[in-house]
Design a protein around this nucleic acid. Structure first.
Length: 508
RNA sequence: GCCCCCAUCGUCUAGGGGACCAGGACGCAGCCCUUUCAAGGCUAAAACGGGGGUUCGAAUCCCCCUGGGGGCACCA
């Protein structure tokens, strides 16, 4: 496959054609991304087309969610329902007449026919075929109808659909860029419905017509279309149209690799802080840069070692030839890794800006000045943005609530811990300020004087000042917090330890 | 049941007949660094599903099996 330099350098026209029937997920996002990348790389156009021909499955708000999701990822389209373009409209529900026109053309050419079979009859036929262990397929009853007569019945208003007259023998060969030729026996193909009884086209017709009219050069879509791929080739050929280059992407499997993510499993994921839905990702603390990097690498690779990619890198390096047709299991821990990588790649002020909403949401009062000082301390500690609250929340509160147990120094008694805390307090009180250069030397001296381990002394200070056992670097944190607050927190720790000591004495 | 697709470490992958006792990444384990946690560095364990061919030579090409996935709607 690698020898086929399909995209070469000529501009492609590609489209992402989602149907507004639910949430945009990472699988769809990846399809959109690959389309976008190849368009930008070749200087072509990326088109957004909404495939909303099924009114029953239409979900209000889904189109907006798709648009928001794509924009969040940074995948801006050149033509689409919201911005128009030379081939508008870009919403299939608004193109009903166009499809009808082309369906008529097929009927006139004898390549499609009216079908008046009721859903009930079709269901009965299906049942019977199944009971005979045959594949369910249209039995072709209306295929034999006299075309003039059928047309008259249709014109008279008799309910009908329009079916494609699939060749009954021979084979059909279509070509996928990644898989090569795919040949099927025509007899296993059905006389697929092209236009429903409500007059709206089904995907097969609508997509073919639109791809042709919109001058799409490459169709990059999910592999769920592979089974009907031969039909799509046949439809293009029935019209005498040149086919686009077809590329079917692999599917995403659940983390176990066993099957697709079910609706239920997708919903459950959020409990673990993950989601396959784009709408959730931002709130869970993920960067669009990381999402792009992560999904780009599920089914595509650049070489044997490069893994970090910005959008600009991807546009430069992406190629259809290096797409991988095998299904890929979703790996969320790798997603976390990429998120950390991109967090560390962000400029400080940008990271501060992105982390701020998470602090605000948890009720912290955030001063930009403090946040800007805190951000460098947490940058390499964050895997997701929302972790900022647990790692650095103590910077933005008046008081912390240390766990009394944690205040007791390892291998020391409560009494000894209390004495140590008092010595620390005395030293800090005497200092002119809390700069690292001011506070660290005397504290190190204390470690030496007491013969304790650094971890023991600093651990006590850490719990007292930050309220947590794990924190950003201690002295840098104290500098940001400032002397006044540090002293106040130390005093509280001493008081707590004293109280604990008294209680222990009373019990004895 | 029928049709189609896919097949390298647990996972994402590199690999286009000799450069492969198979490379990278995540995760996992250990070590280093270190005031905690990270980040970073180093090391380790970890794979060509099976069987036939073709060839001097196969992870790479062909066939079969097996396994996995997708699809069989007046959904997309």
């Amino acid at each position: 496959m690698r020898s086929i330099m399909a995209e070469s350098l000529s501009p492609v026209r590609v489209r992402f054609a989602p149907s507004p029937t639910g949430h945009l997920h990472i699988g769809g996002a990846r399809t959109a991304l690959y389309n976008y990348l190849i368009a930008r790389k070749t200087g072509g156009q990326f088109i957004l087309r909404i495939e909303d021909t099924d009114r029953k499955r239409y979900v209000p708000g889904a189109e907006e969610e798709i648009i928001q999701g794509l924009r969040w990822l940074g995948l801006e389209w050149d033509e689409g329902p919201d911005k128009g373009g030379p081939y508008e409209p870009y919403r299939q529900s608004q193109r009903k007449e166009i499809y009808q026109h082309y369906a008529q053309q097929l009927i006139e050419d004898g390549k499609a026919y009216y079908c008046f079979c009721s859903p009930q009859r079709l269901e009965a036929v299906r049942q019977e075929q199944m009971s005979r262990k045959e594949s369910p397929r249209y039995d072709g009853a209306c295929r034999k109808l006299d075309p003039a007569e059928a047309k008259a019945r249709a014109m008279a208003g008799e309910p009908h659909v329009i079916r494609f007259k699939t060749p009954q023998d021979g084979t059909t060969t279509v070509t996928d860029l990644l898989r090569g030729d795919i040949t099927v026996e025509n007899r296993v193909l059905d006389d697929y419905i092209l236009v429903k009884s409500d007059g709206l086209a089904l995907y097969h017709l609508a997509a073919a017509v639109d791809d042709h009219l919109m001058k799409i050069t490459h169709v990059i879509r999910g592999s769920e279309w592979l089974p009907t791929f031969p039909l799509h080739g046949l439809i293009h050929r029935a019209f005498g149209w040149q086919e686009p280059v077809w590329i079917h992407l692999s599917v995403f499997l659940k983390p176990s690799g066993k099957g697709k993510m079910s609706k239920r499993e997708s919903a459950e994921l959020i409990k673990d802080g993950y989601s396959i839905f784009l709408k959730d990702l931002q709130g869970l603390g993920y960067l669009p840069e990381a999402v792009v990097n992560w999904i780009a690498l599920m089914g595509w690779s650049y070489d044997d070692h490069t893994e970090f990619f910005t959008m600009a890198d991807l546009i430069e390096k992406f190629s259809l030839e290096r797409l991988n047709p095998a299904p890929a299991a979703i790996n969320f821990t790798k997603f976390d890794h990429f998120n950390g990588l991109h967090i560390r790649h962000l400029p400080i002020d940008e990271l501060a800006k992105r982390v701020k909403p998470f602090l605000i949401e948890k009720g912290y009062s955030v001063s930009d000045e403090t946040l800007l000082k805190v951000t460098p301390l947490i940058q390499e500690r964050l895997h997701t943005l929302d972790e900022v609250t647990e790692i650095a929340g103590f910077f933005f509160v008046e008081e912390v609530q240390p766990n009394i147990e944690e205040l007791v120094v390892k291998d020391l008694s409560v009494k000894q811990s209390c004495e140590l805390a008092q010595r620390i307090l005395a030293i800090l009180k005497d200092l002119p300020d809390m700069r690292v250069s001011t506070a660290e030397p005397p504290m190190r001296q204390l470690v030496e004087d007491t013969g304790l381990k650094p971890a023991q002394v600093f651990g006590l200070v850490r719990v007292a000042v930050t309220g947590q056992k794990v924190s950003p670097p201690l002295f840098e944190s104290m500098e940001i917090i400032g002397k006044e607050t540090v002293i106040k927190r130390m005093e509280k720790a001493v008081a707590l330890l004293k109280h604990m000591e008294e209680q222990a004495a009373a019990q004895a």
